[in-house]
Amino acid sequence: MKIAFIDDFHSAYAKTAGVARLRREGEVTIFTKRVDSLQDLRGFDAIVATRERTKFNDAAFEQLPDVRVIAQTGNHAYHVDLASAERRGIVIGKATGGFCTAAGELAFGLMMAVMRQIPQVDGAMKEGEWPTPMTWVLRGKTLGIVGLGNIGRYVARVAQAFGMNVVAWGSRLTDERAAEVGARRCELDEVLRISDIVSIHATLSPQTRGLIDRARIASMKPTAYLINTARGPIVDEQALVDALSERRIAGAGLDVFDVEPLPPSHPLRGLTNVVLTAHLGWPTDEMYEQFAAAAADVLIAYKEGEDVPRFQSEH
């Protein structure tokens, strides 16, 4: 096989065990800068796509006549025209790499950053000041988790170490499943109403788009914080901006947005009660290792004629 790893902007794949395995199976080329034209990938019969950095629509596939299989890392294929791939006989293999504990870790980082005012104090210290605001701790607070899947369950377990009370909602969550990680299942509206911190860990779908709407944000405590390391469109962004601007909630920690990169003039950039990060949840040493291993599994199985877990069109 001739294999292309694309969009490795962190130059992270080269030393992974997964790439070492694939080098024994064929010729591996790693693109650490964005490919100027997909025609640069002519001659490769396999591509490893890093998350959703490159869109694969019908026009893109037209430029990739040699590609037979794409190992798509991550859990989503929003950016892939699956029907077009199917028509062209291109396999879109699932190289999920497991769930992203890094997003769960970042959620706690954002909680502490916004609640303890770490960015503001750091900035003032570097200007020669000595600010000593009263800040808020995690211990004893109620953490509301929206979406108790793998990442949400990880967050619930970590929250126990901080001495937090955990409530959770999920569309198919049961009392027993919540109790396994020390959480109490509540209806979504109750989670929003009683939580000191609401952390979003749901998957983006037609059902969850706009799930945290204006009314639900309005139901939050004025002392509450909202954390989102999942997907921007799960939260009504304009409603959140309004609530933060008017101090109807205490603050937010956001790693994901409706439009990414976040536009330079976006009103979130001007708010002092929000901590913003640039979708840092997944790009970590651990996730690149996991993605490379999963991609190797997919491509070696494909080469050997075995069944490959794949994203498939619903049409």
Rank of each mutant, 00 (worst) to 15 (best):
249 I>E: 03
236 D>G: 03
183 A>Q: 07
232 G>V: 02
288 Y>N: 06
246 E>W: 07
203 T>W: 14
290 Q>N: 15
178 A>E: 04
257 F>C: 07
197 I>G: 12
290 Q>D: 15
242 D>H: 09
181 V>S: 05
292 A>N: 05
187 E>L: 12
177 R>Y: 09
196 D>M: 10
241 V>P: 01
285 D>V: 15
269 R>W: 12
180 E>T: 10
271 L>P: 03
167 V>T: 10
206 P>G: 11
191 V>C: 01
233 P>K: 04
278 A>H: 06
291 F>D: 12
206 P>F: 02
168 A>L: 06
290 Q>T: 11
257 F>Y: 15
172 R>P: 15
249 I>K: 01
295 A>P: 01
201 H>R: 12
173 L>W: 09
275 V>W: 07
185 R>L: 06
274 V>D: 00
288 Y>V: 14
263 P>C: 07
302 Y>Q: 05
297 D>F: 10
280 L>D: 09
200 I>L: 10
245 S>M: 08
299 L>N: 08
280 L>W: 01
178 A>L: 12
190 E>R: 07
244 L>C: 03
294 A>S: 14
296 A>D: 03
268 L>R: 02
170 G>L: 01
181 V>L: 11
276 L>G: 00
260 E>Y: 11
223 T>S: 09
241 V>F: 02
244 L>A: 00
188 L>W: 14
267 P>V: 03
202 A>P: 05
253 G>Q: 10
241 V>W: 06
225 Y>S: 01
216 R>F: 05
201 H>A: 13
293 A>Y: 08
303 K>Y: 11
199 S>V: 12
183 A>L: 04
194 I>W: 11
177 R>M: 13
246 E>S: 13
233 P>E: 08
296 A>P: 09
283 P>N: 09
249 I>S: 02
301 A>E: 02
167 V>E: 10
269 R>Q: 01
202 A>R: 12
185 R>P: 05
194 I>T: 06
179 A>D: 05
185 R>M: 05
268 L>Y: 07
238 Q>Y: 14
164 M>D: 06
218 A>D: 13
226 L>F: 02
281 G>H: 04
284 T>L: 03
279 H>E: 06
274 V>S: 00
193 R>G: 03
228 N>E: 04
203 T>S: 15
254 L>E: 02
182 G>D: 04
224 A>W: 00
291 F>C: 00
253 G>M: 08
298 V>G: 02
234 I>C: 11
185 R>A: 10
230 A>T: 09
201 H>S: 10
214 R>K: 15
233 P>W: 12
208 T>H: 10
178 A>K: 12
172 R>D: 15
221 K>W: 03
214 R>G: 14
268 L>W: 06
204 L>F: 12
234 I>S: 13
197 I>V: 15
282 W>S: 15
174 T>G: 02
252 A>I: 04
199 S>T: 15
166 V>N: 11
235 V>Y: 09
168 A>C: 10
218 A>Q: 07
196 D>G: 08
192 L>D: 03
194 I>A: 05
169 W>N: 14
257 F>K: 13
210 G>A: 04
271 L>T: 04
